[in-house]
């Protein structure tokens, strides 16, 4: 067997199985389902859940909220990143706001958002808030990385603005943009679900986690948490494929 096959087998099957084994042993030692249910029990519960229409409706609603917040954060963060990189005054103006967003505990924002905009919009806003400053920072750095020498060349040859963007800015910003998106997706997903747990909107994974905890249904807490992890991995994979196509497209242009 080739080395890469062995590595893949270890990474994707044997190591996860090892950790599931550790979980099984921990559950056996504790031996109280209300504290740590066994992996088999969680798997059975998850199987029960996925066979209901309600599960998919809840999952769909949570994905929609996080995706909306993520996309809004990517869009506004990218535009702001370009603006702050090109206009030093706007950088100075927005810098305190961005510092406050980065430094404020997410729980404070969740409570404030709940007061300001209600349960449905809070997870969207919180996902947005996690993504926005990171994308701004990544895109800002990417725009600033464009070679001043090439910009002088473009100035001398009077290259039109849109062509300048495609030829000089896009290749410089794209790697930072991709890295920012990858970092932000996981954060948006985790913060979005945390916001759902506190704001408990209708049809949400957060509401299910909140209710399961309230009724001490730890098996359900684990089953929904596994759902969040699997969805996060799946969406991250899809985004990676999309970004890879985008990056290759940028290079091939």
């Amino acid at each position: 067997m080739r080395n890469s096959t062995v590595n893949r087998l270890l990474r994707w099957i044997l190591f996860p199985l090892l950790w599931i084994g550790v979980w099984e042993i921990a559950a056996l030692i504790v031996s109280r389902e209300v504290l740590v249910p066994t992996p088999a029990r969680v798997a059975v519960r998850l199987w029960e859940l996925v066979q209901t229409g309600r599960f998919w409706s809840i999952v769909g609603s949570s994905i929609l909220r996080v995706t909306l917040g993520f996309l809004a954060g990517v869009l506004l963060g990218t535009l702001t990143g370009v603006l702050t990189a090109k206009l030093p005054l706007s950088d100075g103006l927005l810098s305190p706001l961005l510092t406050i967003i980065r430094a404020t505990p997410v729980a404070s924002f969740i409570i404030l958002a709940l007061v300001w905009m209600g349960a449905e919009a809070t997870p969207v806003f919180i996902s947005f808030l996690m993504v926005f400053p990171i994308m701004q920072s990544h895109v800002h750095t990417g725009v600033r990385a464009v070679s001043p020498a090439l910009l002088e060349m473009a100035h001398v040859y009077r290259i039109p603005p849109m062509r300048r963007v495609r030829a000089l800015y896009v290749p410089a910003v794209l790697p930072n943009f991709s890295a920012g998106c990858r970092t932000c997706l996981g954060l948006a997903w985790k913060a979005g679900v945390a916001a759902e747990v506190i704001s408990i909107p209708m049809r949400s994974i957060g509401r299910e986690l909140h209710n399961s905890k309230a009724y001490l249904e730890t098996v359900d807490v684990f089953a929904w948490t596994v759902t969040v992890i699997l969805l996060s991995l799946l969406i991250e994979r899809l985004l990676s494929m999309l970004l890879l196509r985008l990056t290759k497209g940028g290079e091939a242009r």
């Binding site: 020498a149 060349m153 040859y157 030829a167 940028g250």
Partner: peptide, 12 residues
């Protein structure tokens, strides 16, 4: 038109 000493070709 300007041929710069460091050429300034777009690497991508």
């Amino acid at each position: 038109a300007y041929v710069f000493q460091d050429l300034r070709l777009v690497p991508t």
